[in-house]
């Protein structure tokens, strides 16, 4: 059990170089999983601290984002969705409202407008369509299309067989296509 992390200062530097650049990706996933900013913050913090403690187990040269997402999903599922503060948003609209409220609260100057999930136009449509998918399809699609993981990496993150990932991506994208087709055509992304 070699301590590959070296000295404390060494470990911190490696962690900041390799792991922390994925913080926004983790935060985005956390907020979509928890559907509630307070729980998302807890989930993110727990994930990063755990990744730091176990950073000596990370194999250099493998995908650090996938490794951290695995810890994030483990934490999320291991938490058995206790959701101590409040119930998760019950609908896509409510989810967007919550995120918007939270973003405004944390960023009152509006210096970070792109962070608002409930943006205008297409961003809002994409977010609404995503939020309306059943969890298992949404997670698979987000990990493949937004986080850009391979099926094998997603299989590791979700601890689900790769054949299942394949069919979840396929079905999830089919649902999204159906929900987004009108807008995609308007925007000229899909030809009518």
């Amino acid at each position: 059990m070699a301590d590959k992390s070296g000295t404390g200062a060494d470990r911190r530097k490696r962690f900041e170089d390799e792991a922390l650049p994925h913080l926004d990706a983790l935060y985005s996933m956390a907020i979509r999983l928890a559907r509630n900013p307070d729980d998302a913050n807890d989930l993110l913090q727990e994930t990063v601290l755990r990744a730091y403690r176990f950073f000596h187990q990370f194999e250099s040269g493998t995908n650090c984002r996938a490794w951290m997402l695995t810890i994030l999903f483990n934490n999320f599922r291991n938490g058995y969705r206790k959701s101590t503060r409040e119930q998760p948003a019950s609908s896509a609209d409510e989810f967007e409202r919550k995120v918007e409220t939270e973003s405004l609260r944390l960023d009152p100057a509006g210096s970070n407008p792109e962070a608002l999930l409930a943006g205008q136009g297409m961003e809002g449509e994409v977010e609404t369509a995503l939020a309306s998918l059943p969890d298992e399809f949404r997670q698979a699609v987000l990990l493949v299309d937004v986080e850009e993981l391979s099926y094998q990496e997603v299989s590791g993150v979700l601890n689900v067989a790769i054949g299942t990932i394949k069919s979840r991506v396929s079905r999830g994208r089919a649902m999204l296509r159906e929900r987004l087709t009108g807008f995609a055509k308007e925007q000229g992304i899909i030809r009518s």
Partner: peptide
Amino acid sequence: VKALLRERAAMLR
């Protein structure tokens, strides 16, 4: 659809 998600699904700060 895949490209749309990649480009438009918000990456939050």
